[in-house]
């Protein structure tokens, strides 16, 4: 691309209005051309100015409260979490929170810090991989569905186990709304020990899904259960299972 063409494209580039190929050529050019890079820099504050130029709207009532309700209680410093609880092999999954859940589960190496856009791309790709992983498991003809028992009338729970028990998807629905200061906690029970997998707050509609792939698989675990616990979780269940069963 010649300088003249690049100059023409720069305003569109800044707005994000170029197709990927043309944008790539502009990027390539400004990497090596000081004059055009300077021209690009002269537009660098435009996006921010446009971000500010919108009509000022008041935040909806309760915005920050609802935001804080979405913060996983287990990740707050206010209620210190035992190291054993921080497992990377569980993955809460829900359509609305899918990307963010991934951010928790996949860890640092997947992302390039400070390359924000690249990051969104990566996340989408990771998301797709994850969806693929999950639907690959769910669509296996030999998958083993296990219906869980519930102590509450409307609560439903089901585990879909890979036949080799390497991974599973847990789906629960109609979980009752929690009172303030409470969370649900997910447990896996082996004959000799118990693992507190994670605490969680279900989606608005009371549903939650988890993708479970412990390093040692699910073979060691004989049962699974969900209880209501004080915020931050408990070292051992302190209330009867809301839903659970043998694996």
């Amino acid at each position: 691309m010649k300088c003249e063409q690049v100059r023409d494209e720069i305003p569109l580039y800044v707005l994000g209005a170029l197709d990927a190929e043309t944008a790539g050529r502009v990027r390539e050019h400004v990497r090596t051309c000081d004059a055009c890079r300077e021209e690009l820099a002269s537009y660098s504050e435009i996006p921010y100015a446009l971000n500010l130029a919108v009509p000022d709207e008041p935040l909806p009532r309760g915005f920050t409260t609802r935001l804080l309700e979405r913060v996983e209680p287990a990740s707050r410093v206010a209620a210190p979490v035992p190291i054993a609880r921080r497992r990377s092999w569980w993955l809460p999954w829900a359509v609305a929170a899918a990307c963010l859940a991934l951010a928790v589960a996949l860890g640092v190496n997947t992302w390039r810090v400070n390359a924000e856009l690249a990051q969104i791309h990566d996340e989408l790709y990771a998301q797709r991989d994850y969806d693929a992983q999950m639907s690959a498991l769910m669509s296996r003809p030999d998958i083993v569905p296990v219906v869980l028992q519930s102590s509450r009338a409307r609560v439903r729970g089901k585990v879909y186990l890979a036949p080799d028990r390497s991974a599973a998807v847990l789906m629960v629905s109609n979980l009752p709304r929690l009172r303030k200061g409470q969370v649900y906690e997910l447990w896996l029970n082996a004959p000799a020990h118990r693992v507190a997998v994670t605490t969680f707050v279900p989606l608005e509609n009371g549903s939650m899904r988890f993708y479970l792939s412990p390093p040692d698989g699910l073979k060691p675990y004989k049962s699974i259960g969900i209880t209501v616990e004080p915020a931050g979780g408990s070292p051992a269940p302190t209330s009867p299972r809301v839903v659970g069963g043998e694996l």
């Binding site: 707005l15 170029l18 197709d19 944008a23 820099a41 504050e45 996006p47």
Partner: peptide, 26 residues
């Protein structure tokens, strides 16, 4: 989705803005 480039990553190419006059301008 994703059929074209989303813009302000453009600015990732640029040096940090501290001494850029445009920065103090905004």
């Amino acid at each position: 989705a994703r059929s074209f480039d989303a813009g302000p990553d453009a600015l990732d190419l640029l040096p940090v803005q501290d001494d850029d006059p445009a920065d103090s301008a905004w």
